[in-house]
Design a protein around this nucleic acid. Sequence first.
DNA 1: TGCTTATTAGTAATCATTATTAAATAGATA
DNA 2: TATCTATTTAATAATGATTACTAATAAGCA
Lengths: 131, 131
Amino acid sequence: MITNKQRLTSQKKIIMDYLASVDTHPSAEIIYQAVKRKLPQISLGTVYRNLKQLKKSGQVIHIPYRGTTYFDANLKLHHHFICLNCGRIIDFWSSTQNLNNVIGKQTDIGKIESYKLIFYGKCHKCFSEEE
Amino acid sequence: MITNKQRLTSQKKIIMDYLASVDTHPSAEIIYQAVKRKLPQISLGTVYRNLKQLKKSGQVIHIPYRGTTYFDANLKLHHHFICLNCGRIIDFWSSTQNLNNVIGKQTDIGKIESYKLIFYGKCHKCFSEEE
DNA sequence: TGCTTATTAGTAATCATTATTAAATAGATA
DNA sequence: TATCTATTTAATAATGATTACTAATAAGCA
């Protein structure tokens, strides 16, 4: 029998509160440092475990960049702009997605040099192999 | 004085040839395994170093997924579809970029469940701080 | 052909993340 | 409220991907 009930621990609450309080996109390590100020005995593994769970349950999204994962608890549909110089990840609230002439465009955040668009789903092969 | 001349070594050539020959999106490890069949003494570090250089000079693009980096030498503008079930990364040649109603859409590759759009460039802050 | 410097193989080190485990605790139930 | 049990925790070891280091090799220009 599988019981799969998520429990709201103080650790998870503090992690979620922290994520809700920032408009940056912190890594697990940064979250750990911040959260440790309120809960000094928390361990980095706990931060990772909770982030994984929150990701799985759709409460946070993640942005991979240069080998590390950055987190975002803002679930309103938006995109991201990453500064190739300082590494900052900035929310990008564009209404239109005409990507045809976007390269070189000046936006309110900065100048777009490139972009990456990745779709996720289930391929036909996997779909047809389902039991 | 800075000299920055790239040399075409046999290792680099074989890596590029391999990437040009596939329509999959191999990781450094997979590339290493493939390339080793032609050049048995090649080392994994050499593969990584060359991929890094090719990336820097714009000859390959990379797709990060679940902690590993996948490579693509096809420079024609296209996107990617990642199967959340089998992990396969498939080229996605969509002509339109209307992302508004894309979730749930059935495509010739599979069913889209989500997507990620990331822009890269230089933020205003970094631009203005330039000397 | 010789010279200079980028590149290599081999290996150690690093970084981000996950696994392991015994103890603690959330939250359901008596 | 006390009890119970599966989930979560802290601490730490382990893993996986990637980078750094170093002496030897080899592009490719003069």
